[in-house]
Amino acid sequence: MSWLNCPDPIPGDAASCDPIETIIMPRTSDLGGFSVRRALPSAKKRMVGPFIFFDQMGPAELLVGGGIDVRPHPHIGLATVTYLFEGEMYHRDSLGTEIAIAPGALNWMSAGKGIVHSERERPERLTAKRPLFGLQSWVALPKHLEESDPSFQHHGTDEQPEFADGGASVKLIAGELFGHKAPVKTASDMFYADVTLDPGAKMPLDAGWEERGLYTIAGQITIAGQNFDPAQLMVFKPGDHLVIENQSNAPARFVILGGEPMDGKRYIWWNFVSSSKERIEQAKEDWRTGRFDTVPGDAEEFIPLPDRPGP
């Protein structure tokens, strides 16, 4: 049975023809050599399911000698989710993990009660121009796991479930979707997938998830008669059936994400996420006074606690 079977919008039914709750245009920051577009958190929407932070890195061509050089910094109460379309990043953390992430692979680092990591590039890659294009998001941890032990998971591109139907191709990054389940162990019910639609193709988005979003990567898609270009986040109304179409003459690429609502409000300050303001204050003091663990092989530098967390 095709997983593309779905009801089309009903003519004259406003709810079925307008399933979009919010459209977010990410704000852009120049990090020197490449730009970052931040869609979450936004004044319009703080979270989509467990997703509390969503950045697009690039696309960019990194120059010789320049590139990604994020010094060691801490996290609590969240999992960082890194997924690349092009390029490479080199991850090291206070658990002793050292691994390069390639396009289509997944790095999932659960901070729990506290972890420190750096994101740099291997020295041999700095001698030539190279691309960078990818996504980094954070998912908040449920309250009962906020103080869990930190952990790290890596899954190569060949481990991700891939399936196709009617011109729609899906790589499942995390969670469950269309009867498939990704290998990464998540802390809550969610979905996160990389989708390509051929010209003329269409696909549904499961109405069973209460909170759903779509972030456009390349090409143009159409939803309920509205066209959307790259670098936009659409958040959908709960329960509404919707169909994503490619009415253009070129392939379109996007990610879909979401899940069940979190078990209460989350606070975010710099790299810290928690259901408790007091816990964030403790984390700030712990980083200021050097009580976090260090990153083996990358302990000489670190990012100081900022006066303000920034945008």
Rank of each mutant, 00 (worst) to 15 (best):
G66H: 08
M203I: 06
W3S: 07
D69S: 13
H180S: 07
P50Y: 03
T28W: 00
H117V: 02
K113E: 13
D206P: 09
D165S: 12
E176G: 03
Y267C: 04
P161D: 08
D286S: 12
V255S: 08
G65M: 12
A174C: 07
E300H: 13
S94Y: 11
H155P: 01
I256Y: 01
R130Q: 07
G219I: 05
V36A: 09
L40Q: 13
L126G: 05
A14P: 15
G258N: 07
S29E: 15
G259H: 04
L31F: 15
H144R: 14
V184Y: 07
V243M: 14
I173L: 13
L135K: 03
L177H: 04
R46I: 04
G200L: 02
L233S: 06
S151Q: 05
L126Y: 05
I10M: 09
S2N: 13
A224P: 08
L205M: 14
L257T: 03
L132K: 07
D298K: 13
E119Q: 08
S274T: 01
P74A: 12
T186I: 06
G179T: 09
W209Q: 09
A299F: 10
G290F: 08
N271G: 10
S188R: 05
R130K: 06
S188Y: 01
G49I: 07
W287Q: 12
N249Y: 02
S29G: 10
M89E: 11
K44Q: 15
V116W: 03
E124L: 12
G87V: 01
A100R: 12
K181W: 04
E124Y: 12
W270V: 01
K284C: 14
F34D: 07
H154L: 09
D198Y: 00
D8H: 15
L214W: 00
G32P: 10
G290Y: 08
S16A: 14
S148T: 14
R92W: 00
S274E: 04
M190F: 03
S276W: 00
D286L: 03
R38G: 05
K185T: 14
L84G: 06
V48G: 12
G112E: 07
T196M: 08
P142M: 06
T97G: 11
L132V: 09
V64A: 13
P7Y: 06
R92D: 02
L257H: 03
A14E: 15
V195R: 02
Q220H: 10
F51L: 09
P7H: 11
V184G: 07
H73Y: 12
P123G: 10
K129C: 11
R120Y: 04
P306S: 07
D263S: 13
P74M: 14
D206Q: 13
T82N: 05
A187P: 02
A250K: 15
L214N: 01
I99F: 04
L95T: 02
H73F: 12
L31H: 12
R212V: 03
A174H: 01
I303Y: 00
M1S: 13
E278D: 15
G96E: 10
W3L: 14
P261H: 03
D298Y: 12
M190E: 08
P19W: 06
R122T: 10
H75W: 11
K129V: 10
G175K: 05
W269K: 02
N246M: 02
G134M: 08
L141V: 12
Q153I: 04
V235W: 10
P161Q: 08
D30Y: 02
P103T: 10
E119T: 03
I24Y: 11
E300R: 14
E86N: 03
E88R: 09
R71G: 05
Q232G: 00
Q232W: 00
P74R: 11
G58M: 02
L141T: 05
